[in-house]
Simulated scan of single mutants.
Amino acid sequence: MQNVTQSVTIVNMDQLTTPVRAPELATWALAHGRGSLTSDEVARLLGVDTSQVRQRLNAPARRGEWVQPTRGLWVPVPPEYRTWGAPPGIEIIDAMMRHRGIGYYVGWLSAAAIYGAAHQAPQVFQVAVDRHMRDRVVGRTRFVFAQRGITSIPTIAHPTRDGSARVSSVAATMLDVADDLMRAAGIDNAATVIIELSEHELFDVNDLARLAPSFPAAAGRRVGWFLSQFTDRDDLGPLRQVVRDAVTSVSHLEPHTPATGPVDSNWRILINRDVEPDA
Rank of each mutant, 00 (worst) to 15 (best):
M1C: 09
N3A: 06
S7H: 08
N12Q: 15
V20W: 00
R34G: 08
L37C: 15
S39W: 12
S39P: 10
L45H: 12
G47E: 12
Q52Y: 12
P69Y: 08
W74R: 11
V75W: 10
V75L: 14
P79D: 15
R82S: 05
G85C: 01
P87C: 09
I90W: 15
I92P: 13
D94L: 03
A95E: 12
M97S: 06
Y105W: 13
V106G: 02
V106K: 08
W108R: 03
W108N: 08
S110G: 09
A111F: 10
I114Q: 15
A118M: 10
H119S: 06
A128V: 07
A128Y: 12
V129Y: 02
D130W: 06
M133T: 14
V138H: 03
G139H: 07
I150Q: 01
S152G: 02
H158P: 04
P159M: 05
T160R: 10
S164Y: 15
R166H: 14
S168N: 10
T173H: 09
M174T: 10
D176C: 03
D176S: 06
V177I: 15
R183W: 03
I187N: 00
I187T: 07
T192L: 04
V193C: 06
S198Q: 06
E201D: 14
L202D: 15
L202I: 09
N206E: 11
A212W: 09
A219I: 00
V223D: 02
V223K: 04
G224N: 06
Q229E: 15
F230Y: 15
T231R: 11
D232V: 09
D235Q: 10
Q241H: 13
V243G: 01
D245W: 05
T248F: 03
S249P: 00
E254H: 14
E254Y: 06
D264C: 09
D264M: 05
R268N: 15
I271G: 01
N272S: 01
N272T: 01
R273G: 00
D278T: 13
